[in-house]
Write a protein that binds this DNA or RNA. Structure first.
Length: 950
DNA sequence: CACATGTGCAA
DNA sequence: TATTGCACATGTG
């Protein structure tokens, strides 16, 4: 294999660093010193992968230094608009240098030249010297350099690499010659490099032009063939086009020379590298590194299935050896211990490691399989369906796994009766109370199976929920979890059924062998994640929260979602008509006042009219992108002086109402049930709250008279039912009072006082009876502000108070409630020391930024330290209440159903004969879900619609 | 068609 | 320079 031409790898350092950093932006790696090591980790992972996979004999890592003097000379805005390099990247650079030096990796830097130009020049020189060069970079600009001997070696999102040779470039850019990539980039521009490009020309147009004219020059010489606006624009920007092309051209005459010897790989200084990794707390990388450089690793090197490397130049590796033997120890994130059973080689799909996935054949095969299945104490399963909506989706198959690396797939027939027959055979498994069921997002599977009249019984372990408790701020989809904790990249669903939109396939259209591979892999991975997470749950002392709250809630939510709520479409239709005519009138008035017609819904156009043309304000506030801000708090000050602004505000309110609620809700009524089924997300809000979508039923208007009308559209199931709404009164303030043991506030609650009036009376030092509306309102604002960690500035923004008055008010507030202030600083201190805060049920939120150096970020973390335990404890309490109520309704075989949760409120469809019983039961369960030193109070209302029920 | 931005609804 | 969310219309590529 090495008898082929010699190979040179040139690594574009910054491109890989940026890519690594942003790939982890949602789950940044923070070590115990609070340092963000994402960029280093991301870069090293990619880099070591290349070494491990390709074993290059000649290699260099190329950095920029001092930018490109040349390009800036040509175009002074070149890269000027780029955001400043994030801190996470800045701190990474010196470490990466140090690591590469310790590894004895050649580093190329040429002051005043970009890495692109250095790499370009070197590859062309190496080509003359008989080398095949691989440019390791994701940056598509490099495509212009590709030749018979020069390839791009691109890391692919989700792991693996793809190689671009001439055919790939020609196909990708739809050109005849790689050099035309320069014309393409020149026309289209590149926002990240600040190459302007031709205005109005994007990917599609650029490709068209190149097919038609061959080059930028060809285009500019033949503009008479263009039409309309495009002709004008291109002609007007000819110079810009030529300049853009120059900027996009990678220079090949950088004063560097390719001497073979300088690029030879040599033995790394293992001790030095290990030391740096230890300092950074990179455990997995340490083994990854040893592996990448070891002889053994070379022998057992596996092939990634995504390999697109040309056969002649890149050695194809031997079939993967048994990865379970333990010569790799790549398992686990840097904080996770590695274990023998969960060892997989880096960035591979599970396909490449030894595994045994079997398709269960019908007849005898099914019987044998089910017999075996029923003997297991604990099984992971995953349903495959025709779509994402569990109310309409049909079963395509179910994967099962109970042993790492092994699993089975039961494919389902399309025909309804046959499918039902098959699921009946599986019923004993799903309805067994003995067998524990493991899954990722089990709510979905439960809802799907529900349609087949199967109820999933027994203990549940949902890996998504488990991870949500382990770190609620991270993302919890299975692909990310597999990468983070198991270090492998599952087959993506897009690979199977294509991107959503144009011609997305259904799972049904996927060959059953591929279904098996994909589905069982997911079950296999989920099973392995469970092993991981169950340990971590214990370490974080979150087991009770998991078992007693989050897991039981899954079934409660599945029931609520399946139930849905009745919506009065006709009523909304008539509202829509009313809104329409009012909006039309306002529109006419606004156009008249503005002297022209424009799109009022466009903040850009509106700002231009109000502040650019009419100049209603001397110094208009701008948004971060430099547009005039037309936000409500800006405009409302001006409404009394300018009719047009009052009209705009009213228009906005009505338009919002119509588009977001009145017109949108009827479209969400499910065909099959004629009801609206929201989807509650249990793992989104970092504090432990639920969120609701498709549609969001947690933000239905209530504050304005007009908006409130929408609530009239939510009605009982039929004439035998009424809607009941039960609200916790001031639950968050009660929690903070109890947690801080602030007696004054606790007393007020115990005595059933109006808490805001009571606060006002104490803070402003007036008798309770003499508190003015304004005083109560200000006290209410502070009460809420305290929960969020408000500043004097923020408070003065929310009230009529000046900054000074706001500060006085806050000071008086803390004097009234000294324990409250103490509690707040205690929370902050706890977070500083432990890195997290927790709720009454031990739900944690990690706040690493609280020890960071950025004052703004740190301030936000400090507010979170106060807010998260309060908001989160309230969430804990209502979740407990929901579970208890759900159980009572089930056990008592009531017809009443729980329908909605809105953070501190529950909504029920109550069967009229059960009404009195329900009022008592619901109020009792909510008030007694969790007992604190402050009583909880729940207000219950009943009505013919949601508005009346309040 | 996908994504960013500005805006605004709820607790 | 107040917490947590979701979703709309516009604008851009």
């Amino acid at each position: 294999m090495s008898d082929q031409k010699k190979r040179l790898f040139l690594v574009d350092a910054y491109a890989l660093i940026f890519r690594g950093y942003y790939a982890l932006i949602k789950n940044p790696r923070i070590n115990s010193k609070g340092m963000d090591t994402s960029a280093i980790m991301g870069f090293m992972n990619s880099f070591l992968d290349v070494i491990k996979k390709e074993r290059p004999d000649h290699l260099a890592v190329c950095f920029d230094k001092g930018g490109s003097a040349n390009r800036v000379e040509m175009f002074e805005e070149y890269k000027a608009n780029r955001d400043e390099t994030p801190d996470g990247i800045k701190i990474a650079i010196p470490y990466i240098y140090k690591i590469l030096e310790a590894m004895h990796i050649p580093i190329m830097v040429k002051e005043g030249f970009e890495a692109d130009d250095v790499i370009g020049t070197l590859s062309k020189q190496a080509e003359k010297a008989g080398y095949t060069t691989f440019m390791v970079t994701p940056d598509k600009d490099f495509a212009q350099l590709v030749s018979e001997n020069i390839f791009m070696y691109r890391p692919v999102f989700g792991g693996g690499y793809e190689t671009w040779g001439i055919p790939e470039v020609l196909k990708k850019f739809e050109v005849e010659n790689p050099l035309q990539v320069i014309d393409y980039l020149g026309m289209m521009g590149d926002a990240s490099d600040n190459i302007p490009g031709l205005p109005g020309v994007g990917d599609k147009t650029a490709k068209k032009f190149i097919k038609q004219f061959g080059s930028m020059e060809g285009l500019l010489e033949n503009t008479e063939q263009l039409k309309g606006k495009m002709k004008e624009k291109v002609e007007a920007n000819a110079e810009l086009g030529l300049l853009s092309k120059k900027l996009a051209t990678i220079m090949l005459d950088v004063p560097v020379e390719f001497h073979e010897k300088d690029f030879e790989m040599s033995e790394p200084d293992v001790t030095a590298v290990t030391e740096i990794f230890e300092e950074l707390e990179f455990r997995r990388l340490t083994t990854n590194f040893t592996n990448a450089f070891s002889v053994e690793a070379m022998a057992s090197k596996g092939t990634n299935h995504e390999e697109t490397t040309p056969k002649k130049t890149i050695q194809k590796a031997a079939p993967t050896t048994n990865a379970g033997e333990g010569q790799f120890s790549l398992f686990g994130g840097d904080s996770q211990p590695s274990t023998a059973t969960e060892v997989f080689s880096s960035r591979k799909t599970i396909k490449d490691t030894e595994h045994f996935y079997q398709l269960v054949q019908s007849g005898m095969g099914t019987k044998l399989f089910i017999g075996n299945l029923m003997k297991q104490p604990s099984v992971c399963f995953d349903t495959e369906t025709t779509g994402l909506n569990p109310l309409t989706a049909e079963l395509v198959g179910i994967a099962f796994s109970w042993e790492a690396g092994k699993g089975f797939y039961v494919a389902f027939p399309e025909e309804k009766e046959a499918a039902q027959e098959l699921i009946e055979q599986l019923r004993p498994f799903f309805e067994s109370t003995e067998i524990e069921k493991i899954g990722q997002n089990l709510k979905y599977d439960i809802k799907v199976l529900r349609k087949y009249d199967i109820s999933v019984k027994g203990q549940l372990f949902d890996t998504m929920l488990a991870h949500y408790l382990i770190n609620p701020d991270m993302r919890h989809n299975m692909d990310v979890l597999a990468e983070t904790y198991l270090n492998y990249t599952p087959v993506s669903i897009t690979e199977l059924i294509g991107k959503k939109g144009k011609n997305q396939k259904s799972m049904r259209d996927v060959p059953v062998e591929e279904q098996t591979e994909y589905a069982v892999e997911d079950a296999d991975i989920t099973l392995q994640l469970k092993e991981h997470f169950s340990k971590e749950l214990i370490e974080a002392d979150n087991q009770k929260l998991f078992t007693d709250i989050e897991v039981p809630l899954v079934r409660v939510l599945a029931d609520m979602e399946a139930e849905g709520i009745n919506l009065d479409k006709d009523f909304l239709n008539s509202l829509s008509g009313d809104l329409d005519s009012d909006i039309l009138t306002l529109e006419k008035n606004i156009y008249e006042e503005a002297g022209e017609e424009f799109n009022i819904a466009s903040p850009k156009q509106l700002g231009e009219i109000l502040f650019g043309k009419m100049k209603l304000v001397e110094k208009p506030k701008k948004t971060k992108t430099g547009q005039y801000s037309t936000a409500e708090d800006v405009l409302s000050y001006l409404a009394k002086d300018h009719k047009i602004i009052a009209d705009v505000l009213e228009y906005r309110g009505l338009a919002k109402l119509k588009s977001t609620y009145v017109d949108a809700l009827p479209l969400q009524v499910e065909e099959a049930t004629q009801r609206v089924h929201t989807d509650y997300m249990q793992t989104v809000a970092a504090t432990g709250r639920l969120s609701s979508n498709n549609p969001n039923l947690q933000n239905i208007p209530i504050r304005t008279e007009r908006g409130r009308q929408v609530r009239k559209a939510f009605i009982p199931r039929d004439e035998n039912y009424v809607l009941l709404a039960a609200d916790y009164s001031q639950i968050e303030l009660r929690i903070i009072a109890a947690l801080s043991q602030e007696e004054t506030m606790m007393e007020a609650f115990k005595n059933g006082e109006d808490i805001h009036a009571s606060t006002a009376s104490k803070v402003f030092d007036v008798p309770l009876a003499e508190v003015t509306r304004e005083q109560r309102s200000n006290a209410k604002t502070v009460n809420f502000g305290i929960i969020y960690g408000v500043s004097a500035f923020g408070l003065s923004n929310q009230t009529d108070l000046s900054r000074g008055e706001a500060k006085e008010l806050i000071d008086a507030y803390y004097e009234t409630y000294p324990k409250l202030k103490h509690y707040m600083s205690e929370q902050v201190n706890f977070a500083r020391e432990h890195g997290y805060v927790e709720t009454i049920m031990g739900r944690r939120r990690y706040l690493n930024a609280i020890n960071g150096s950025n004052a703004i970020v740190r301030g936000a973390a400090e507010r979170n330290a106060v807010n998260a335990p309060i908001q989160g404890s309230a969430a804990d309490i209502i979740k407990i209440a929901m579970i208890n109520i759900h159980r009572k309704l089930e056990d008592g075989h009531y017809k009443t159903k729980m329908l909605l949760q809105v953070h501190d409120e529950l909504v029920f469809d109550v069967y009229k004969p059960e009404l009195e019983e329900m009022k008592t039961l619901i109020k009792y369960e909510m008030e007694n879900a969790y007992l604190m030193d402050v009583p909880l109070d729940v207000e219950v209302g009943v009505g013919q619609n949601w508005l009346e029920a309040h």
